[in-house]
Computed example of a mutant assay.
Amino acid sequence: MTKKYTWNQYTIKNVNKSLVLETILNQSPISRADIANETQLNKGTVSSQVTELLGEGLIYEKGPGESKGGRRPVMLLFNEKAGYSIGVDIGVNYILGIRTDLVGNICEEVTTYFNDLSFEYIRVKLFQVIDQLIQSAPQSEYGIVGIGIGVPGAVNKEGKILLAPNLGWENIDIKGMIHQRYECPVIVENEANAGVYGEKTFGSGRWEKDIIYVSVGVGIGVGLILNGELYRGTDGFSGELGHMTVEGRGHRCRCGNQGCWELYASEQALTSSSQISWKDYVDPLTNMIEKAEKGDEDAIDTFHSIGTYLGIGLTNIINSFNPERVIIGNRITAAQRWIEQPMMGKTKHNALWFQQDSLKIHFSEFNSHSSALGMAAFTFENFLKVNIHEYTSLV
């Protein structure tokens, strides 16, 4: 039996406003008449919704536009400066925070590095980053519309961090802590999921339905867009492919297993194959890059090894998911010069030939910013309520 839904006037009004706002957001500058044509709403409804949106400061008028006969129409544009979103990527030895406008343009960024992994220490650093981004924000209609936090670990659907092994965190309610301090909507997500969403929203993955984003920092996380949707798995824990086994008798990982991919293909390989210690340098990746740039053969060999192991893991991912695009992101992109060739060579040699026909593999154009951009996008979309998804229940 077909269900019959009854919509009250308030619901219809909000659905129409969302439709009008989304049309302006995606197609501005646009006239009222063109909005009516695009949405199939009558002109009176469009006019009333536009009036409300103008009063709310989410759109503004600019004109007149080009005439199609008769008077030249007043054009409407989305007010991207009506508010600002904060996106934060918490790494194992850094915090990157950005403030964007309501369409994802980065207005300011702050990065801090550390080698003390205690939660209390990182909490203080996180507050400092967010405080700086908020205090330097210009006046706007809505101010800071929300804060998004990406973390390298398993996050449940309520935004609680169940396990972040490389940080040593378990059962951390960072969402409640941030909300209590700043009194605004907060979204917490796995940083690789945020990264693939950033690539899908702003990057080279905009036109494709099956995208794999591999976030390579001190650990490895994998974000998946499958059939156009972010795939989280049954409980939200998909993408922990940094802990797939690539060496049966390999080193012991912080997760408790042996031979995990990230031990050999992430920044962790820099410490296990050299004399560098995380306690000696806040940023051993930069130190190793400086050595490689000077022709240090050990440093170059280490990066070649990382590239080879990246290729091994990518082969497993490609053969499993048959994606259209694989994007390598996060801090390891700084070493692309030495990593790319061995990675691509291994992948080309090992991945099934019929998987490679329409496959594109490349490093992110955003370098280490994909996750922060993805968190900012989750946050301002939640504010605008244009794309309806489960995050609307997290405010």
Rank of each mutant, 00 (worst) to 15 (best):
G295P: 07
H243A: 04
V214R: 04
V88D: 03
C184W: 02
T286K: 10
V395N: 09
G104S: 11
L226Y: 02
G248E: 15
Y94P: 00
T302D: 04
L394Q: 07
Q9N: 13
I289S: 07
S364M: 12
Y10L: 09
R123V: 12
T100P: 05
A372D: 01
A372F: 02
G217Q: 04
N42H: 13
L76G: 04
S85Y: 11
R99F: 14
V155D: 00
G217E: 02
I339H: 00
E158H: 04
H251L: 15
V88Q: 05
V74E: 03
C253G: 05
R71L: 15
L162C: 08
W169K: 03
N37Y: 06
L96G: 10
A265H: 01
I30E: 00
Q275T: 15
C253A: 08
V124N: 15
I312F: 06
P284W: 03
N257Y: 05
S364E: 06
V214Q: 11
W338V: 00
G345D: 08
E381L: 11
I161A: 01
V74I: 14
C184Y: 02
Q355D: 05
E170T: 11
Q27T: 07
L263T: 02
N387S: 12
A351N: 03
K4P: 04
G87R: 02
D280A: 15
E293Q: 14
T315N: 01
K4W: 06
T392N: 10
V46Y: 12
Y142H: 13
A82E: 03
Q275E: 14
G97P: 13
E183C: 14
T286F: 02
I106R: 10
G223T: 08
D101K: 12
A351H: 01
F354P: 00
D34G: 03
N115A: 12
N16R: 14
G153F: 02
I318A: 08
L133F: 03
K291N: 07
T315C: 05
S273P: 02
V92P: 02
Q135S: 14
R252F: 13
W169C: 03
G203T: 07
S238Y: 05
I59V: 11
C107D: 13
F354S: 01
Y94V: 06
E208D: 10
L19S: 06
G143T: 02
A377K: 04
F363A: 07
N367H: 12
K81T: 12
H243Q: 05
W261Q: 08
C107K: 14
G168W: 01
S31D: 04
S277H: 05
I187R: 01
E267Q: 11
N257I: 02
S31H: 05
A372K: 01
Q258R: 13
G307E: 01
S274A: 14
D283I: 08
G91I: 15
I317M: 07
L41Y: 11
K175A: 13
N367P: 01
N156G: 12
V222Y: 05
G146R: 00
W7Y: 13
K43A: 14
Q40V: 15
K200A: 11
N287M: 14
E66N: 13
S358G: 06
I172W: 09
I306P: 00
I86P: 00
Q268Y: 11
T245Y: 06
S272I: 15
A137Y: 09
G176S: 06
G250Y: 06
K385I: 14
Q132C: 06
V46F: 11
Q9P: 09
L133I: 03
Y231K: 11
I30C: 00
L314A: 01
I98A: 06
Q336W: 00
A137L: 09
S67P: 06
I12D: 08
W207A: 13
